[in-house]
Design a binder for these strands. Structure first.
Lengths: 356, 356
DNA sequence: TCTTATTTCGTGTACGTACACGAAGATTTC
DNA sequence: GAAATCTTCGTGTACGTACACGAAATAAGA
């Protein structure tokens, strides 16, 4: 292909200037006569210069801190996936001299979120990754960071009104739309049930809101007369949940279609398995170990999944390149694939999701 | 985290030896007293040395050639996806000082395959990537390369009896199994039709054979009395194909389930659209532009897809690390995810598949 | 014992980029 | 017109690893 790599030295020779000057131009660090700048630019153009990232990274002695703000979790919960992805992304970014630290907060506590933001502000990193829950505070934080020149990346969901460098995650509305299409199948039902999680606070602070909209939009397009029941479960109260579901299914024995928009479909799978229910059509989200098991044993039919690892990797990478080379990602809103998992393809997915 | 990176210099000081000796140990290049070797090893262990890949790659002046052997193609065919993935993977491997060249052959011509292999042998590269079609020749080639110390990576499909460094691709049998489960749906049919491509040569030289086995295995498990019709199409003969399908559907108006194991489901979609057929259930493979369109307009219901870009990237990466650092990939057979695409999630997939 | 091999090791340079330092030239100031 | 300031640029060193070259130390041969 190309005979040999073009280096700054070549540029310098071609422009009749020194390496130092070329370097100043490339990092537009000032202190260069306009005429010289032109010459360097021209030389770079004609010779087709490309940065040797290995040399650049080697010579770059700076060390960067990235701070990741996300909800806390216990074993097997959704945010654990994200947390694990961070480690993998950090390893991938070795060579950029980057370390990632995490600040977590209780996603159901507005107070803790504010605290977490304060903690972040009191020890500012060079870049921030955030999985946003509280809308207004996130917007405010984004402006604060913008002013400080600190780039921010959204993962998992985004707040459009905020000031951010990039987003890496699935399209929320469309994920609900997809869920609806999978749930209905070939013999459309008359009614379905949506199991939700009790949650206090403003409705706009729920990232799955857009997902619900996508879902209902699909229904009004295709089955306007369908009725949806809403039932509320609790994350850690099995007894309560069983009571809720017992009551519901006693009153509505005909309902066979179940949807949930958060990652806790395993709460329902648990119930289904325990009660030995059959012929249900359950659609849920996110590749938790318990959800995988539910798909394997047939309690859940479809799992809609996002590529957490890839999202994190790309988010960290975007920040790394911004920090090291000053390059802005080519696309700001990176909507990533929604994967459909069923019993027959989940094994090979779940083996891989840890690495890719 | 770690206070500071450990370098060879640190190792040298700790071991009471020079950098040169440490280097010789690390590359076991010989010429080192056993006692010294021990000291160095110990120092590396206690200090926790990790190679600085940037520096290593920078100092490594070698240039590597990787040769990629794959079937030729015309616009919009499956192998074009793979070909495009090569370019992307090559760009990803800049920094390893690697260039990839491609040798193509007509997949229906055994002769051309042999020629391609000869061409490869006459100008040996430092590593080989291969998408195998002809089984015996591939095995033979693999032994030849093994002897020369040239690593080989399989993508897309593999020949288990060959001698290879790693495989990156979907599990073939399982992809057929999955296809069957998607095809049957909720109201199992009495018969289905499989459209195939006319192909001469040994049956074992067809990489989709395992896929067909997975498919039929699913059927015998779940619907043993189902009957399968086999019809044969030609890649580039629309008129002939239409005649075949006209005849078939005239004789079997009740058949609504269609499967194809290669990437040319668009041939059928084309027919379906042209004839205005409705209520068919069609399952196909691979994310060709024409197949995407067929899913969008409803002619194809499910598309089973592999991540060509990722497979190539990982294949190239495995070879690059082998060449540059002598590291063997942690897993030899890397079975990658099978993605299910429907109308509601294909848009975000197809936007991404070029990059990821 | 002295030369000649052989083994073992240290030094020096290169890779391409980043950036500090300071020299030379140009401009301003009184 | 000399001193002070500012602009513009070249030189030198560092980053951590790879590898060639040759020096010192040891062993072998006479």
């Amino acid at each position: 292909m190309q005979a040999k790599k073009v280096t700054v030295k070549d540029i310098a020779r071609q422009a009749g200037l020194s390496i130092g000057t070329v370097d100043r131009v490339m990092h537009n660090r000032g202190g260069v006569a306009e005429e010289s700048r032109q010459k360097v630019m021209e030389a770079m153009e004609t010779l087709g210069y490309t940065l040797n990232t290995n040399a650049s990274l080697l010579a770059n002695k700076k060390h960067y801190r990235i701070c990741c703000l996300l909800p806390s979790f216990t074993d097997g919960e959704y945010w654990e996936l994200v947390y694990n992805a961070i480690a993998s992304a950090e390893k991938d970014a070795t060579g950029y001299n980057i370390s990632i630290e995490t600040i977590t907060y209780n996603q159901f506590s507005h107070e803790e979120y504010v605290e977490a933001v304060e903690k972040l502000k009191s020890n500012l990193p060079q870049a921030v990754i955030i999985a946003p829950i509280y809308r207004n505070e996130t917007i405010e934080l984004s402006h604060f960071l913008k002013e400080k020149g600190i780039p921010m990346v959204f993962i998992d969901s985004k707040v459009s009104e905020a000031d951010y460098l990039a987003y890496y995650g699935i399209p929320m509305w469309e994920s609900g739309y997809l869920a609806a299409s999978l749930l209905l199948g070939e013999e459309p039902p008359k009614s379905i049930v949506n199991f939700r999680i009790e949650r206090s606070g403003s409705i706009t602070d729920n990232p799955t809101l857009a997902r619900r909209h996508g879902f209902t939009d699909y229904l009004t397009e295709n089955l306007p007369q369908l009725s949806i029941y809403n039932e509320f479960l609790r994350p850690y109260d099995r007894e309560h949940n069983f009571a809720v579901m017992d009551k519901f299914f006693a009153e509505h024995p005909d309902i066979r279609h179940i949807i949930t928009f958060n990652s806790r479909v395993h709460l329902i799978a648990d119930y289904i398995t325990a009660r030995g229910l059959k012929d249900l059509r359950v659609v849920g989200f996110d590749i938790l170990d318990q959800n995988i098991e539910a798909v394997r044993n047939g309690a859940v039919k479809y799992l809609i999944v996002q590529r957490t690892q890839v999202q994190l990797r790309r988010g960290v990478n975007a920040l790394a390149e911004w920090l090291a080379f000053g390059t802005t990602p080519p696309v700001r809103d990176n909507y990533m694939p929604m994967d459909i998992l069923v019993r027959e393809n989940i094994n090979f997915y779940s083996e891989m999701y840890k690495e890719y």
